[in-house]
Design a protein around this nucleic acid. Structure first.
Length: 597
RNA sequence: CGGGAUGUAGCGCAGCUUGGUAGCGCACUUCGUUCGGGACGAAGGGGCCGCAGGUUCGAAUCCUGUCAUCCCGACCA
């Protein structure tokens, strides 16, 4: 391709609304254009990158027996109501765009495809003889993100590869899950990217085991915790650790004392000379449950610990066995709007009476009482006395009439001891989630009554797995991991073109002819080649070549008269003078190295 | 959803305090000189100053509303 015909529009200045390097570089390099928040045009260079990523992914999916299909984006609400996800996905923090057609039928734009794929597989598969099966697609997905940002990283419209597997039993599912795990590792390696698999929460999709693939980058939105020996890696949402030990308190007669402070743990520690690990703090949250119900939750945590809302969400869902739409903090305004008397915020203890909720307009009249292990393990502690500016000192769970059962709802933090080896401490890293694999089990097949007939002639629900890769996100994340002060440095396997020939001076006939000759020969060798034939000054062309990040470069310049050119590898910044023939061979050797990988 | 900021040419910005018919740099067009790391000179083209109301003889500028975009937060108040 000739650069003069490429629709290459590069920007010298960084657009003001781009924050992270990859977003800035893709805009500046003429790869993408924003149409609306979280909605982008993939310009010709970007589309080539995306197609390359898709191709690698598709090849590896085919190798593990995946069948490629294309599922609809426009999906009827009935399907989502059957699986029980319609409300959760359209209300509260719901992420599904939804609409009504002229018949007033409700439809959603697919943020994911479990419902559709499960129902179609149910129609097609009747017998265990047809199983196992894996179906996949590469499709544009729609998600009404709370806050789209960072270009393609968190878009409202994006490209994803999603695969779904169906099995007669759990061990067969686990077998495919393992194969997918291996295929994913191979995919990221082939793309030339550093990606770490971590244990993960399965989130709204639900299910049992799940693993995320995190591309390491400083701008990553996710915090991951890793053990130095590499044996443990988890998303902070899911991570476990051994908490630090609390500072012991001398056991004395318990007493209620006046504490003049703002109500924060920090203040209380200062004014009463305590350590935060000696205090039990209480957080009030409100769960919004399907069918418009609201459940106040009273959570006890050790003072130095932080609430892990994802763990909390999962535990609450398990306990009430219904879809929870949202969990958010209870505020004094919220209390007032229920027509309730004010709560003693800042001095609440684990035993705050349920009578505080009596007469609430639409909240449940009882607190759901939860506590983290670290709180329950405290023998003696300080906690709120349920009266403004009063705390109970040297109290214990025996004195607290309402002892909740212990759960793991605390946040693991870097520096804490690892569960598998207490001699090691967790390290923090930032990551961009580019892939996620799940063992769904029978959640969706049960909900949608998707069944097959087994050897004994009885109906069984499918065992299912699902496996996603964010194609467009991965393509940008690759830039986040591979750039320098001059621009992008694409890994060869996913670069839009393998090589760019820069003719330094288009006025020089010798240079021009040698460049054209190399261009032709490279094309004949099936090399993806760009020829910068623009009538620009050499400096401009070098800057653009650096910016758009083509991994290999041949500069045809003043040594053309000796038949020599410069060969340069983008990431090394070093060039060497070679004959045009040698340059050809260099390019061919490099390109072959990726096809052999 | 809460907080903050910003909307002026394709991109980056000034002008707004103190109202008087819109400017700079880059990019674009033409000509000339130049030609290995984002050249120089000359001459041009391009703007309903986000949108809608209001105040005023007169609004990019002041007031009100609205929309959009970006950032932070949505965890111990």
């Amino acid at each position: 391709m000739r650069v003069s015909r490429l629709l290459l529009v590069t920007l010298r200045e960084t657009p003001a609304d781009a924050e992270i390097p990859s977003h800035q570089l893709l805009l500046r390099g003429g790869y993408i254009r924003r149409v609306s928040a979280g909605i982008y045009v993939y310009l010709p260079l970007m589309w080539r990158v995306i197609k390359k990523v898709m191709k690698i992914v598709q090849q590896e999916m085919d190798l593990v027996g995946g069948l490629e299909t294309l599922l609809p984006q426009l999906q009827p609400s009935e399907l989502w109501k059957k699986s029980g996800r319609w409300e959760g996905y359209t209300q509260g923090e719901g992420i599904m765009f939804n609409l009504k057609d002229r018949q007033k039928r409700s439809l959603g734009l697919g943020p994911t495809h479990e419902e559709v794929v499960t129902s179609v597989v149910d129609e097609l598969i009747n017998s265990y003889r047809q199983l196992p099966i894996t179906i996949y697609q590469t499709q544009t997905k729609f998600r009404d993100e709370i806050r789209p940002r960072f270009g393609l990283m968190r878009g409202r419209e994006f490209i994803m590869k999603d695969a779904y597997s169906f099995h007669t039993n759990e061990s067969c599912l686990q077998d495919t899950y393992k194969k997918m795990d291996a295929a994913y590792k191979k995919i990221f390696a082939r793309c030339g990217l550093k990606v770490i698999p971590v244990e993960a929460d399965s989130g709204a999709i639900g299910g049992e085991a799940s693993q995320e693939f995190m591309l390491t980058a400083d701008s990553g939105e996710d915090c991951i915790l890793i053990s130095p020996d590499g044996k443990y890696a988890a998303n902070q949402e899911k991570a476990v650790s051994i908490p630090s030990d609390p500072l012991p308190i001398k056991e004395e007669q318990s007493s209620i004392q006046t504490t003049i402070c703002s109500g924060s743990i920090e203040d209380l520690c200062k004014t009463s000379q305590l350590d935060s690990s000696q205090i039990i703090k209480v957080i009030l949250m409100l769960a919004t449950i399907e069918e418009g119900k609201f459940q106040p939750i009273l959570i006890s945590l050790r003072g130095d610990q932080e609430l892990n809302e994802v763990k909390l969400f999962n535990e609450v869902t398990k306990l009430i066995n219904k879809n929870v739409l949202e969990i958010s903090p209870i505020t004094s305004e919220g209390v007032a709007s229920q027509g309730l008397p004010p709560f003693p915020f800042g001095s609440i203890g684990p035993d705050l009476e349920d009578t505080y909720l009596k007469g609430a307009k639409n909240w449940s009249n009882n607190f759901m009482r939860l506590a983290d292990h670290t709180a329950i393990k405290l023998k003696t502690f300080i906690c709120g006395a349920n009266e403004l500016n009063k705390h109970k000192f040297n109290t214990n769970w025996k004195e607290i009439s309402k002892t909740p059962s212990p759960l793991d709802i605390r946040k693991a933090k870097p520096g804490e001891r690892c569960v598998h080896d207490p001699l090691q401490t967790l390290q923090e890293a930032r990551g961009i989630e580019v892939g996620h694999i799940f063992q769904l089990g029978t959640k969706y097949s049960n909900a949608l009554r998707a069944t097959f007939t087994d050897e004994e002639g009885t109906l069984k629900p499918f065992w299912m797995g699902c496996y996603g890769i964010g194609i467009s996100r991965l393509s940008q994340a690759a830039v986040e991991q591979n750039n320098d002060d001059l621009g992008i440095i694409w890994p060869l396997a996913i670069a839009p073109y393998h090589v760019i020939i820069v003719i330094a001076n288009m006025q020089d006939i010798l240079q021009k002819e040698l460049g054209e000759m190399l261009y032709l020969k490279l094309q004949e060798s099936k090399i993806e080649v760009l020829l910068d034939d623009r009538d620009e000054r050499a400096g401009v062309k070098f800057k653009d070549a650096d910016l758009i990040g083509i991994p290999l470069r041949i500069v045809v310049g003043r040594d053309a008269k000796e038949g020599k050119v410069e060969f340069l590898i983008r990431h090394s910044k070093q060039s060497k003078l070679v004959s045009s023939h040698e340059a050809l061979n260099e390019v061919i050797t490099h390109v072959q190295s990726i096809s052999n990988a």
